[in-house]
Simulated assay, not measured.
Amino acid sequence: MTDHGLRIDHAVSSGTFSLDGETFEVDNNIWVVGDDNECIVIDAPHSVDDILAVVGDRKVRAIVCTHAHDDHVRVAPALRERVAAPILLHPDDRPLWELAHGGPDDVDAYLWDVDLADSMPIEVAGTTLTVLHTPGHAPGAVCLSAPDLGCVFTGDTLFQGGPGATGRSYSDRSTLEQSIRAKLFALPDDTVVHTGHGDDTTIGAERAGL
Rank of each mutant, 00 (worst) to 15 (best):
F185S: 08
H72Q: 15
F153V: 11
I51E: 02
E123P: 15
G15H: 04
A138K: 03
N29D: 04
N28T: 10
P45C: 01
L99G: 11
S47L: 03
D92M: 08
A182E: 06
S174V: 14
G209I: 09
D9Q: 12
Q178A: 15
L88P: 03
P135T: 09
V60K: 04
A146I: 03
A100W: 05
S14H: 14
A76R: 11
E177D: 11
P135R: 06
P163C: 10
G103V: 00
D200C: 10
L89N: 03
E22S: 15
N28D: 09
T128S: 15
R181Q: 14
D115W: 02
D105M: 07
G140W: 03
P77R: 05
D9V: 12
D27E: 12
R58L: 04
D49E: 09
A53T: 07
W112I: 08
L158M: 09
A141L: 06
G5T: 01
G103C: 04
A100V: 08
S13H: 02
T128P: 10
L210T: 01
G209T: 13
D9N: 13
I203L: 10
G167Y: 07
A138M: 08
D105K: 01
G204P: 13
S169Y: 08
A125Y: 04
A53N: 15
G15Q: 02
E22M: 15
H67S: 04
D3C: 13
H67C: 07
H90V: 04
V48T: 12
T202M: 10
D71S: 15
V33H: 01
H194Y: 14
D57I: 06
G103H: 00
M1C: 14
A186W: 02
A85W: 05
E177A: 13
W31P: 14
D190H: 11
G164E: 03
S145M: 03
D118M: 05
R61H: 10
D70A: 12
K183P: 11
D43I: 02
P104N: 14
A182S: 15
S179A: 14
R7L: 11
D20N: 09
A62G: 09
T157P: 13
V33K: 02
H101R: 06
S47G: 07
L129Q: 00
S13D: 00
